[in-house]
Design a protein around this nucleic acid. Structure first.
Lengths: 333, 333
DNA sequence: CTGTTAGCGCGTTCAC
DNA sequence: GTGAACGCGCTAACAG
């Protein structure tokens, strides 16, 4: 609601020129107005406390410089570095970014966020880790607004996304522990309903198989990557699990594992090594600090904006991962 | 960028009616169109995959249903519950919310966030814990868009805000430790450059004075509420501080204190009690879980939206705080 | 260099 | 009930 704000017409009247001229000087179309009128117009604008109505401008130019980021939940702790990456790269392209929350697997909330963005002029849409309900994906595609998923991947549908190689995440996490002499390795809190989780499990299984280890069914504890999922997994393993190492499917899950393991009497890392997946700041907040397979979330955000600014590029891109050693791992035997 | 999307004109042509009529049925102005034309128009709209251009509508109606929340940093961990509160209450009023990040004490970023919001039709603006540079406050006030600060308070300027009573926060935190028999109590990571921090310090001092304790200058360690501020404070206290309890000026600061205290050889809470201020989820992530003076952030968000929906109310409101006991406090002596 | 005209997509009169 | 016309604030195209 702009209220009774001044318009270019008001400025025109005050400066004694036409609205067209005002538009030109305010847009700084050099060469299309004289020094003198430039001064006059700017003075009038300042006097009236003029604020441009960008929505009106976008209506006529049919283009916008805002990119929207839709995030699945306020609780997704890795969203923060992604958003920072988006923001940084967007500003480099002189783009502005707005963020919307789409709730946690709530298709109604998703629709709400999506429509408030689609019904307005936005240049492109980035979706952080949100798995859209089918009808909402249709909505998005029909809008003809360029979009790209971040930190999530798909197999059945064909859409642009940028994320880590989740198979490698699972594989390298497992390899890391294998190399330390661990054999009985758990995977805690992973979601097998979606591609991301299935890939991580597949990478884990492959690494185990290559090492000649048969994974026991109970070693893989499913969940939704949350703290409580980590807790539940560890409780399921129990005090006499026989496990010497556990991979937390996310940082939060790993912390859940850590705290519950402690209350079950495990010493970490002496009795039990824990490796987190994600590598956000919480890894350094807890004690012992959690070693992690770290994703480059910031880079994901940057790449997302670049991808949308350079159409024609490969629609699917992979950001690198790396092992970050902290204090939660120990050689076995 | 809406692209070549269908407009009400297209629908009008397809349905064989006038654009005005289309507008009426789509806005569901009952009584202003017949059953028959209603059907026709809706069918045409569906066939064309029509998406309303809300920006254009807002241009003519001169009002918007989106409220903008400007957040000071992606790292502010308590922003999450505030945003959830905003979102919930906004949806109750059929409002949509967009979020912008204003960076960390970066007046250029602030201006950017502010103008992208002001130049567009938004109904109102909520500012989460952002202390605006003077020129940006002027910008905001000139926009004539209703606004309200959240989780921050002011003394010198007169603006609407909703927050906890920061004096009480400091006072009650200190009282809590006093009642447990502590006398040498530190306050770590608090910022005295702004009203919020000064109030907390004042509450702390008052409680100490009432208990007849002279606070030593080094007991108050200034900082910016961050994890590193907490670390720095604890390092300043040192291994032989004589302190038996420390108040962390925020959850993050408290965790910084906790981890550094540990590395200095303190056992928490046996040797040292730690009380956090804020009470967000990280208090439960670390071990021992941190007791806290908890703020009701969710309620702040709710109240912020209500305040903006019911003009004429008191512009300054206080949300309640409460002590949440976890495992980081112990009686002294 | 500058004024005039047209129109972006929509809601809302005001006639009929 | 419905169509025609107007205008929201702005930019772009076209004269001059």
């Amino acid at each position: 609601m702009v209220g009774m704000a001044a318009t270019i017409k008001d400025i025109a009247k005050l400066a004694g020129v036409s609205p067209g001229t005002v538009s030109r000087v305010l847009a700084n179309k050099v060469g299309f107005f004289s020094e003198h009128t430039g001064e006059k117009v700017r003075a009038a604008a300042a006097e009236l406390g003029y604020q441009k109505n960008t929505a009106a401008a976008e209506l006529v130019t049919q283009q916008s410089n805002v990119v929207a980021a839709i995030v699945n939940s306020t609780k997704t702790n890795f969203a923060s570095p992604i958003i920072e990456g988006i923001q940084a790269e967007a500003h480099r392209h002189d783009l502005n970014v707005i963020i919307l929350y789409a709730g946690d697997d709530d298709s109604e909330q998703q629709r709400r966020a999506l429509t408030t963005v689609i019904e307005r002029p936005v240049r492109s849409i980035l979706l952080l880790s949100v798995d859209l309900a089918a009808e909402n994906l249709t909505l998005l595609q029909n809008s003809r607004i360029p979009f790209c998923f971040l930190s999530i991947s798909f197999d059945e549908i064909q859409v642009p996304y940028i994320t880590s190689d989740d198979w490698q995440v699972g594989y390298q996490a497992t390899q890391t522990l294998l190399k330390l002499g661990h054999q009985n390795i758990g995977l805690a809190g992973v979601d097998s309903d979606f591609h991301t989780g299935r890939q991580r499990v597949a990478g884990y299984r492959q690494a185990m198989q290559e090492a000649g280890i048969t994974v026991q069914p109970e070693w893989i504890q499913l969940g939704n990557y949350s703290y409580t999922a980590g807790q539940a997994a560890m409780r399921a393993y129990g005090a006499n699990s026989g496990l010497t190492a556990i991979i937390g499917a996310s940082d939060m899950a790993a912390v859940g594992v850590l705290n519950t393991a402690r209350s079950l009497g495990y010493r970490v890392p002496t009795d039990l090594s824990i490796l987190a997946i994600d590598g956000t700041e919480i890894c350094e907040l807890v004690q012992p600090a959690l070693s992690s397979i770290s994703q480059n979330f910031y880079e994901m955000g940057v790449a997302g904006v670049q991808q949308l600014c350079a159409p024609g590029e490969l629609p699917q891109k992979i950001t690198p991962i790396k092992l970050v050693e902290r204090d939660s791992l120990q050689r076995n035997g």
